[in-house]
Design a binder for these strands. Structure first.
Lengths: 247, 247
DNA sequence: TTGGTACAGAATGTATACAGTTAGTATCTC
DNA sequence: GAGATACTAACTGTATACATTCTGTACCAA
């Protein structure tokens, strides 16, 4: 993880609570709809109720927990439609970031950074098929999307992109874990990289509409992968957070 | 306010804290950059530290407070550029809601609701100039934007729109308080209503691209009003939250 | 057997007490 | 007079105790 986004409260205990509960949720140790008891979590995480409580409130804000009217929280369950919408939302926001970057212009040094990242991804993608370095690809892909966010030049926009990315199945690297097994996915990486280049070129040429359109379309690769993965339960288990899906 | 959005914690004391602190911030009783002491707030609001603390954490998530690395919170200060971006963001999100509504279709009953709201706004706008009912306009305008959000059919999108709207200067009714005094603003209401109708028509005709484009442009009326208001400090004071602006 | 009521257990919401840290001030030294 | 150091006061982060509310179960009545 390149940076820890806007505010990931430094306070040790509360941070442990947030991370711990997130882990419990996304690893599937607690099921969607299940009620999360503060005392239970306190015991499991070895913390007192106070930081656990703070963590719960925060994760509710993040959207992975739901408030029970009578009090307490449950794990939110997502439908496949929710995930489609979350991916669409990411596309819209990244598209906006790309457009703003194009319209407002970016500094030469940042343009250079972007080209450097693209070159790195090229190295990975153009390598031999049998020695494909997936972790490296995931890393550089995340860096590209991180930079795109920054290039928007807007804290307000960056913040919202961070928020959507916190829904793990909406992020640009969500389906990478499931990809090594499937040949068709390899193709999508090549296509994805072509789109990266198009976005970068559009920003450089200050073609805002094109930058937005391509960035938006780029996110739909994820939707395509989602459809693929949803047909296979074994694959679903490899995508973080996809266990929260239940019609 | 038609509904109280996603989750406005029912818990009495915590709710008081959130509302109370928001009020203190937006009324300008605490200045941007000022540190908010928990004990001080507890005393002022007549609550214990626990709900105050919960409220602070929440308002930080909402984006009107900032976390101090060494602990505690300050009132976040916004630049004019931030507000422009927030308005742009609202336009992008409402545009997406409108597009999805058009692409996916809406029920006849909801279409009827939308038309009813438009008729109500027409009544207000087409009335005599000297007896213009601003509160009524604000109410129906808010209802239109609320419905547009719902028409997206997506909880994920609705949630994000709610978030942006919580930044008071980004909402569709942000500049209404300052409008009665300025004749030029009256014109913008007529234009705005024409855009409302265009959005509704595009949704009904399932013209997604048009719905998105018009909804996005619609938000730029707010930007126009912002430019106008920012030149006049007396007017600025009438727009909620605009006191948080400082270069 | 089914429905309702009452009671008990548990869980949340709130308050407060405690510890560690930060920031500010005053004094001392150079 | 200026800078540095030490001390004090306030504040945050955490833990725990208390009260109220909710939930689930058991028992009773129809």
């Amino acid at each position: 993880m390149a940076q820890r986004s806007v505010s990931e409260k430094a306070s040790s205990q509360t941070l442990k609570a947030v991370l711990g509960i997130r882990e419990l949720v996304f690893s599937g140790e607690v099921s969607p709809g299940e009620r999360l008891s503060e005392v239970n979590l306190s015991a499991r995480l070895g913390l007192s109720r106070t930081p656990v409580r703070a963590g719960l409130a925060r994760l509710e804000q993040e959207g992975i927990l739901e408030l029970i009217p009578s009090g307490g929280y449950t794990v939110r369950s997502f439908t496949e439609a929710d995930i489609v919408d979350a991916i669409e939302l990411r596309g819209v926001l990244e598209g906006t970031a790309a457009r703003l970057a194009a319209e407002r212009g970016i500094s030469p040094s940042r343009l250079a950074s972007m080209k450097a990242i693209l070159a790195e991804i090229d190295k990975v993608v153009s390598g031999p098929d049998d020695a494909f370095d997936f972790p490296r690809y995931a890393e550089m892909n995340a860096e590209f999307h991180d930079l795109l966010k920054v290039l928007s030049g807007s804290d307000i926009i960056s913040r919202e992109i961070d928020r959507v990315m916190r829904l793990p199945f909406a992020g640009p690297s969500a389906f990478l874990n499931a990809q090594p097994d499937i040949p068709a996915f390899r193709t999508s990486l090549v296509v994805g990289q072509a789109q990266h280049r198009a976005i970068a070129h559009a920003i450089e040429m200050r073609e805002g509409a094109r930058a937005e359109a391509v960035a938006r379309e780029h996110s739909r690769l994820a939707r395509q992968n989602l459809d693929f993965v949803m047909d296979d339960h074994k694959l679903m288990a490899q995508v973080p957070g996809l266990m929260l899906v239940s019609g």
